[in-house]
Design a protein around this nucleic acid. Structure first.
Length: 922
RNA sequence: GGGUGUUUAGCUCAGUUGGGAGAGCGACGGCCUUACAAGCCGUAGGUCGCAGGUUCGAACCCUGCAACACCCA
């Protein structure tokens, strides 16, 4: 093995070998375990969020595979309708073309071509992460089988009346020219203006205070072109007399009824509200209630259409806004303008301001689907981890609105509906089926719906359509419901809820038994990682490393806002003065696990990755040490385990227990902690050090040495298996060296069993003995450290006090203590013996003394001692106060009281010893 | 406006049923000790957001308040 850990030397070859051997496919027999991957965008690339979630999924899959389950991690990608179409349209624009010039067929062809070119990237990156996905079963939401499932679902929902087409007010994205769903609209607070306009009253009508006009306020003046009423609150005394009268809409010269509606907030603005049913969701409801006309004044591009006066036709909405304000001002109808912060709706993809717009769209009638999905979670058939996300889920599901599923786009599943010459709608699997169902002759011309389904409609079928539905396939039977869905809280509504509804509807089963909701990855300062902010991290850069100049170029290139480049460059040079070193996949994965605690935000700090790269190196070198001391040795000799051997196995048992518990409850941070703690703090820091004296003692009993060698190997091998789910590559590389020495069959660690607690036994005796030893060694190190004694200086140690057990342990562990603390001699003194001036350490009643002579400065030792006395006295006082409290003694459980008494007695003994020592030093 | 979550060491976070406040990183001091300087040894640092309450006992349970984050309208 190389002297230091080099991830590049091992990773790719190992992954290729696993894949070639078919190890990622579920085994033929055994209980199934399945996770479906949240499908990445087919033309996308890996970001930190993927790296994070995929690490957790892969850890689960590898863990369950090692536990004997037939584990399937179902691979697939999403066609990502809007974002992919946007990307390709942008490419076209760069060439000076538009999709409309190209036409639908050629455009779609072009997208497929782009998919062919860039669609493999994410798959390669997933391989670099070590993801044990079953590539042989890879699916795509637009592949033939999946599309069939989509059509099937559409047709059946339509048959049952759960899909309908209708004219509704929808969120219209003028930049993309399509409707989008409520969830795709992001409302953010922005600064704007509130314009107050005067609408003259018709006839001789006057307001209560004698004015001839009403005042209405709006943040969107251009919409007044579509006003069809003015509303007031029915109990608003100021306007009661005006209800039923009419006002005149300026510029348009339309008479508007003055109506009363509870929805009006009398305290907002003037108390009068202009009603634009075709361009505002609240007004739309008012319009329905009062049977108002709905005047659409916007085109698909959000310019003013022909329903408006000629003066404004064709103007962009924001140009029209300025013009209208100016015109009203000129007419003396602008009362005032007010600074105003408003919630601006923007499209999550285009970031354009969304316009509510009246259009014909397809909807899913969702309430009948939501009901069983709510029940499934209430009854625990689907369980959220952490549990509190169920509240979020219920809140949304119980107030769910019909789902707009049609998009005026080209890239996606074209809606399987055909229009007859009379405008009648015929739905079917295909045109033939639609004709058959409708009983239409072959010569009746039919025109297919132009719209496609939104991407989430197909994603909603992911759990079962990837497994072969609508065919009753074996994988479907074996792996559905899947075991757990691992995803972020940002897509609980988009995806999780819809999958539950669709799976229940079409398979009668929940799609997964548990949902593990991860936090979302942010940068080290807690900010969202984004290209615009230039604070993004590419997981591949953490794995492979990247030079500073290249990193700067990557972060500042192709910015949508180029003026931000200098700031980004400066921050990058500050944060990564030497670029990013290559840390390897295992270190990145370990970081992801270690950061996966229960919070909602995961602050990703590359410093942690460096630390875990070091951990990989530690493990690598520990393995080198073990191999150096075992290769070519006779390991078959009868073994006689010593206390350290028994101890490390007992510790291993504890580690396996903790690791198993952590993985079973999705506490990946605790799992990583258990592995790290055991490997570094116990196996390396103590066991390897304890092993050295025995290994290097030429006069040692052969059976003892054999036991040490076997223990070194066996515990290392067990540790590798326990750590494999989080760090697959390094564990495989080391395991291949270690396994032959232990005569283990098999060519890969990934198919070996995960360690079981029952493989090991607890050992109270060994624990006590090694605890004692550690106590003595730490006490001596402490004296050394504080007294500034050089590590090369050997010590003479005197022992006094203690009991028979201390003498027994000293006899057993003396040689180990000597080696670990660099002690040349240990001498027992009787209780009454005079002792030279010394530095004192305590383990229970046992006094560990290092004579000062020539080594330790008396003053330094006095200071150290005084500190120890102060600390111990504080502790004792606290305990004595507690024990003096009668209420405590009578009310607390006896074992608690007993424990406190023992602690007090111990503190007292120690304090006494320290005080005697203090007196003796003068 | 409604809801959810968070607040513990300089930073990032653990803390399982209420019973001696922890880890990693960082800081400081000392070491090239023959697996590892990507290492080893040691040290310092906290009124557990604030105010009440329950309890013999509260970081943990209850109430109120504050700050921050996110979701919904």
């Amino acid at each position: 093995m190389q002297a230091s850990f080099d991830p590049h030397a091992i990773e790719s070859a190992i992954y290729r070998a696993w894949e070639a051997a078919g190890h990622f496919a579920p085994k033929e027999s055994g209980e199934g375990y399945c996770i479906v991957i949240p499908p990445p965008n087919v033309t996308g690339s890996l970001h930190m969020g993927h790296a994070f979630q995929h690490t957790l999924m892969d850890a689960l899959i590898r863990y369950q595979r090692m536990r004997g389950r037939a584990a399937l991690w179902q691979m697939g990608t999403d066609h990502a309708g809007i974002s992919t179409q946007m990307l390709v349209e942008r490419q076209l624009n760069a060439e000076g073309k538009t999709r409309h010039e190209l036409g639908r067929d050629r455009f779609v062809e072009r997208v497929w071509q782009w998919k062919g070119e860039s669609g493999g990237k994410i798959a390669q990156q997933l391989r670099r992460m070590g993801s044990s996905l079953d590539w042989s079963r890879e699916r795509f939401t637009l592949d033939a089988g999946f599309s069939r499932a989509v059509v099937e679902v559409f047709v059946r929902l339509h048959e049952e009346g759960l899909i309908y087409r209708g004219q509704r007010l929808v969120n219209w994205d003028p930049a993309l020219g399509t409707a989008i769903s409520d969830l795709e609209v992001i409302n953010t607070e922005e600064q704007g203006s509130l314009w107050h306009f005067r609408y003259p009253l018709c006839g001789d009508v006057r307001t209560a205070d004698g004015k001839g006009h009403l005042v209405v306020a709006t943040t969107r003046p251009e919409t007044l072109l579509g006003d069809t009423a003015v509303a007031v609150h029915p109990r608003d005394e100021r306007f009661r007399a005006l209800i039923g009268q009419r006002a005149r809409l300026p510029l348009v010269d339309r008479e508007l009824p003055i109506i009363a509606d509870d929805a009006v907030d009398p305290a907002f603005g003037s108390g009068c509200v202009k009603i634009t049913p075709a361009h505002d969701f609240n007004d739309y409801e008012v319009g329905l209630r009062h049977n108002l006309a709905m005047v659409n004044v916007l085109t698909a591009e959000a310019a003013i259409n022909d329903n408006a006066p000629a003066a404004y036709r064709g103007l962009d909405r924001f140009v029209a806004r300025q013009r209208i304000v100016a015109d009203l001002d000129a007419l003396g109808l602008l009362e005032r303008v007010q600074e105003h912060s408003l919630m601006a709706p923007r499209g999550d993809r285009s970031e354009a301001i969304i316009e509510p717009r009246l259009t014909n769209q397809w909807f899913v009638r969702i309430a009948p689907l939501a009901e069983p999905a709510i029940k499934a979670v209430e009854e625990g058939r689907v369980e959220f981890v952490p549990k509190h996300y169920e509240k979020t889920y219920f809140a949304w599901m119980r107030d769910i609105k019909d789902w707009c599923i049609s998009r005026q786009q080209w890239w996606g599943h074209r809606i399987p509906a055909w229009y007859g010459p009379d405008g009648a709608i015929h739905v079917g699997q295909d045109e033939f089926d639609a004709r058959r169902r409708a009983g239409l002759a072959a010569d009746v011309p039919l025109r297919q719906e132009e719209d496609v389904l939104e991407t989430w409609f197909s994603s909603a079928l992911w759990s079962f359509a990837t497994l072969g539905w609508p065919e009753p396939t074996k994988p479907l039977e074996r792996f559905h419901p899947t075991d757990v869905l691992v995803t972020g809280h940002d897509i609980i509504f988009f995806w999780v809820a819809r999958m539950i509804m669709m799976a229940l509807k079409f398979t009668g089963e929940v799609p997964f038994r548990q949902v593990y909701v991860t936090g979302l990855v942010r940068d080290a300062e807690g900010r969202k990682m984004s290209k615009t902010k230039g604070n993004g991290l590419d997981p591949l850069d953490l794995i492979d490393g990247i030079g500073l100049e290249e990193l700067v170029a990557k972060r500042t290139g192709n910015l949508t806002q180029p003026h931000l480049a200098p700031g980004i460059e400066k921050a990058t040079r500050r944060d990564y003065p030497h670029g990013i070193p290559s840390y390897g996949t295992d270190a990145l994965r370990f970081t992801c696990c270690a950061l996966a605690s229960t919070g909602r935000v995961v602050r990703f700090d590359p410093g942690r990755t460096e630390g875990y790269r070091n951990f990989c190196n530690k493990l690598w070198n520990a393995a080198r040490f073990v191999l150096m001391n075992t290769q070519g040795r006779d390991l078959s000799a009868a073994a006689e385990p010593g206390l350290p051997d028994r101890w490390i196995r007992a510790r291993a048992r504890q580690m396996v227990d903790a690791a198993t518990e952590a993985l079973d409850t999705y506490r990946f941070d605790l799992y990583a902690g258990a592995i790290h703690e055991f490997a570094w703090r116990e196996y390396c820091d103590w066991y390897l050090e304890l092993a050295k004296p025995l290994l290097w003692d030429e006069g040692a009993v052969p059976a003892r040495q054999a036991a040490v060698r076997r223990t070194l190997l066996e515990v290392l091998e067990l540790l590798l298996r326990a750590a494999h789910p989080v760090m697959p590559f390094i564990t495989e590389a080391i395991w291949r060296e270690v396994a032959p020495l232990l005569d283990i069959e098999g060519d890969t660690i990934m198919l070996r069993p995960f360690p079981e607690v029952d493989d090991l036994s607890a050992d109270a005796e060994a624990d006590a003995a090694i605890d004692w030893l550690k106590g003595v060694v730490v006490a001596l190190r402490n004296i050394r450290g504080e007294a500034g004694i050089k590590p090369s200086q050997t010590l003479r140690v005197l022992l006094q006090g203690g009991d028979a057990r201390d003498r027994e342990l000293a006899a057993l562990s003396g040689p180990l203590v000597q080696r670990l603390a660099k002690v040349e001699s240990i001498e027992w003194l009787a209780d009454g013996d005079a002792v030279p001036a010394n530095a004192l350490g305590l383990v229970g009643d046992l006094r560990i003394m290092v004579p000062l002579a020539g080594l330790i400065d008396l003053e330094v030792e006095r200071t150290r001692l005084q500190k120890a006395i102060d600390r111990k006295r504080t502790e004792l006082n606290r305990l004595q106060t507690k024990l003096a409290n009668e209420k405590f003694v009578t009310n607390a459980p006896p074992q608690v009281v007993e424990k406190e008494r023992a602690k007090a007695a111990d503190a007292e003994t120690r304090l006494l010893a320290l005080e005697i020592q203090s007196a003796s030093l003068g």
